[in-house]
Design a binder for these strands. Structure first.
Lengths: 357, 357
DNA sequence: TTGAAAGCGTTACCAG
DNA sequence: CTGGTAACGCTTTCAA
């Protein structure tokens, strides 16, 4: 392959001038520039990205480490939506995305270290996980760049973006209470998704009951790993435990799909005898039947924000910006077919707000 | 950050010796080695991957370009399963995966060129697409490494891996015919997924009819873009066109989910009045209700094979292996709840073979 | 507006 | 078994 020297000698200029042309420096005579461009085309010259990286001390790669293993990440629509958000931002920039999905937090911490310290990447999108705090503080000390998905430690003020789960819980629960539900089953987030400093949606669910002056059904709270199976078993347990159950609210879409499966296997129609509210509202399953009412958790935006905060950060390296203030994303209620409330009059009123396929 | 020189001077050896220790060259005295390792630990030294890449002319990155855009790729369980296959192989190796999902074939061809020619990657997993032939031939001439998902041109003998779609079509159709179906609606692959040299599953469907001495229902063939919507509209059109329709066979899972939605909206139960057979059998939706009978297309294996063929290729650079013979993957029938045939006796017999949740 | 030469952090040839 | 030194291909300071 041709190097910058080949181009230089062919165009009868110095390598520096070729470099100037490639990098669009203004101070090159039109004629020289033309000759250089010709030589580049004739030789099918492509600047070597690795050499450039070495010199510039910048790889234009961004790492994204998720500590839940490939089986979970590539089969969980929520994780994929976050990845998509990051991908879309980076595809429009000059950065490449390197995704890594080790199975445990420990492996993930090693992976993060490897990518950053070996200079494979300029910065990281870092999933907040158990044990990440010392690493995050070390990175801050050494000026290594990261944005975390969720806080790495409770007092973290900068460089994170997080879904406001309690707000989503509040919004969904208030909606269900307004529909007349009182005995609602809640499938919250398993502890591994709350580490190290994230609050559960359940907090918000309780607040909605409190504000309405109603007693929160503590016996109807469980925690799931976001999987279809988990929702399936949660629904079975709610049904066995509470004969007056009229609604189930899940912290993820797949769990809601498991709930639907459990209900239908017992001849119960979601949205009729029992309402179901999901927790992500993901495009991947949005068109399935039945249309799932949900709290849209803005997972796409989460990934997008993380990536754009990081890019902003990296593109301003050495300038004014040092830290980006942390941000929270608030969900939105989307009503489809699985929630209709306890009153027929409600049903009619609400059906007006439904999305069409 | 510490460099190899810092380590060398701290351990009172030459950089070369440090390099030897890092790269596990045998010819280093135990004592020297110990001193070097100590220095490495004390300085928290990490070899710079970029410098190593420049010297070795090897980045240990692999590119994977899919020309269907982010909205499709990140929402299509089939594409994700292929990516997962590639990811899992590469995670167990020393290679990083760089995924790129431009919207058009043209952009994809540019992207492939960029990644390979700028030496960002050592090799590519290259989705066969329209216009790829000249590029593939150029790569072969120049010794640039790729494995294609599907053939890049009809006579391609090496360096591809492909699902044998006609075989899947044959297998599924034969199964449905054995169940007693005659009027089957077929949702095949849209043309963009068949370019440039892939055969449609429909070929195999026709063969199954021929072998059974039955007339193939040409009026019940349509082609879809693998989306839920597409299956939804295909089912509607079949129902409008053919009153004797008893089964629908889709070339992807999401399309089958669209079919289920269309059927249920008309009060038709999948697996009862009309059987539904899907075309991927993807883990992401395997646990939904109803359990979907399907041809497992081995999409995970497809991605896995592509990545491992490429790794084998790259790890043997300069040795005996030059080209890897192309391979075909054959699907398998998986029976769940959406196919029961026309006879009750069949239903009972077949229920024995069903998977449990 | 242009060029010579140093340097980014490795690896590896060739001596010793 | 070990070390000096020249690459790898680019960018950039400084001088012309």
């Amino acid at each position: 392959m041709a190097t910058i020297y080949d181009v230089a000698s062919k165009a009868a200029v110095s390598p520096k001038t070729v470099s100037r042309v490639i990098n669009c420096c203004p101070s090159v005579k039109e004629d020289t520039k033309r000759r250089v461009l010709e030589a580049i085309k004739e030789l099918d010259y492509h600047p070597n990205a690795v050499a450039k990286s070495l010199k510039r001390q910048k790889t234009n790669n961004i790492g994204y480490v998720i500590p839940y293993g490939s089986d979970f990440v590539f089969h969980d629509p929520g994780q994929l939506e976050q990845i998509k958000g990051a991908n879309d931002v980076l595809a429009a920039s000059d950065y490449n995305l390197i995704i890594s999905v080790p199975k445990t937090s420990n492996e993930a911490l090693h992976e993060v270290n490897r990518l950053l310290k070996h200079k494979n990447v300029d910065g990281m999108i870092l999933y907040a996980m158990g044990g990440v705090e010392p690493l995050a503080r070390e990175f801050e000390d050494k000026g290594l760049r990261y944005i975390s998905l969720g806080k790495c430690y409770p007092e973290q003020k900068y460089n994170f973006v997080e879904v406001d789960a309690p707000y989503g819980g509040y919004l969904g629960t208030k909606y269900l209470l307004d529909l007349g539900h009182r005995m609602i089953g809640f499938v919250g987030e398993a502890s591994q998704f709350l580490e190290p400093a994230k609050e559960s949606m359940i907090t918000g669910c309780i607040r909605a009951y409190d504000e309405a002056g109603l007693k929160f059904p503590n016996h109807l709270v469980t925690h799931g790993d976001y999987s279809v199976e988990c929702g399936y078993y949660a629904a079975q347990s709610f049904l066995a435990k509470e004969p007056n159950l009229t609604a189930i609210f899940c912290s993820s879409d797949p769990m809601a799909w498991g709930v639907v499966r459990a209900l239908r296997e017992r001849g119960i129609t979601p949205g009729k005898e029992i309402d179901v509210l999901a927790g992500d509202d993901l495009p991947l399953t949005r068109n399935l039947e039945p249309g799932m009412s949900a709290i849209n958790s803005k997972l796409y935006d989460l990934g997008m924000m993380a990536a754009s905060m990081l890019v902003e950060y990296l593109d301003n390296e050495g300038k004014i910006i040092t830290d980006v203030p942390g941000r929270y994303l608030q969900g939105e209620l989307v009503i489809r077919q699985t929630t209709n409330g306890l009153l027929v009059s409600n049903t009619n009123r609400l059906s007006l707000r439904r999305e069409k396929f």
